[in-house]
Nucleic acid binder design. Sequence first.
DNA 1: TGTTTGACTGAACAGACGTTCAAGTATCGT
DNA 2: ACGATACTTGAACGTCTGTTCAGTCAAACA
Lengths: 153, 153
Amino acid sequence: MPTPTPQSRRTTAAKKQPGRRNVRPLPRVAREDKSDLCEVEVVDHDKVARARAALPDPSTLVDLAELLRALGDPTRLQIVCALATDDVDELCVCDIATLVNVSESAVSHSLRTLRQLGVVKYRKAGKIAYYMLDDAHVAQLVREGVRHIQHDE
Amino acid sequence: MPTPTPQSRRTTAAKKQPGRRNVRPLPRVAREDKSDLCEVEVVDHDKVARARAALPDPSTLVDLAELLRALGDPTRLQIVCALATDDVDELCVCDIATLVNVSESAVSHSLRTLRQLGVVKYRKAGKIAYYMLDDAHVAQLVREGVRHIQHDE
DNA sequence: TGTTTGACTGAACAGACGTTCAAGTATCGT
DNA sequence: ACGATACTTGAACGTCTGTTCAGTCAAACA
């Protein structure tokens, strides 16, 4: 049986290797390939070109996706929300674990993820680690997200 | 009479529709439990109480996490970015597939996810489905995310 | 009518994810 | 020094995710 599938030729742009997390996996983000695409751009070739031009560069895209996915976990989202609270500048791991109701180990793992993304940082005082936000933009982003969810739709 | 009927499901609540297996058991989101926690709140009990009070309610938290996680996928993020482009009001599935360089099937699956979250909607013209954004807030959120990623850090 | 096209769907698979568990590193109190 | 505390780390495990594949459907065209 022949394979008349339009784009079955070079679709192997999605081969990612099992690398570490914090670096840049760069999964299958647009590679400016477009050379052997078969002309599947049926409808509006010009509009596609415009959209492609307006697309953020792959590095930005992957970084943002990574950030959003990190915030897309209830545990981590709660941590960020807690640290974004007024009058709550910093919290220790133990308190965060109590707050979001998970084990300290799980919190520690989550905090590491957020740390590697530059979302949080920490200060060590004795044996206690106080975590705080490292990126005010992220807090702002989350606050707006909450507002959007709560207001409409 | 063919009924294009662009669907847009914007369920205010109750988006735990029983898809297939485990629905959405609301994993370990704050349960207001705190009664039998062993007094692990070592450092600042008051601050924990404040942070907990400021935390969004579980339903908002889960909805937002769901949205952020959906946007945290490079394919879906690119789709939203493309549709958020000025002068690009709508795109057909075929063009989107070309744009983000994945198969039409994968795009269709991704679009369904975004549709179910109320991020995009579509209009059918003949056999072509034109997708467009359904939530301007999300587009705004993504645009700010891009700006934040590009500007600092 | 039959074929082609654009898009959708369900099953299935490889890989990724988040938690738990057990062990580890410092630091503090005695 | 010893043990307890606060936290981190790595491995393991079950679950979830996104893609591919194959099949389906409706609309357009021959």
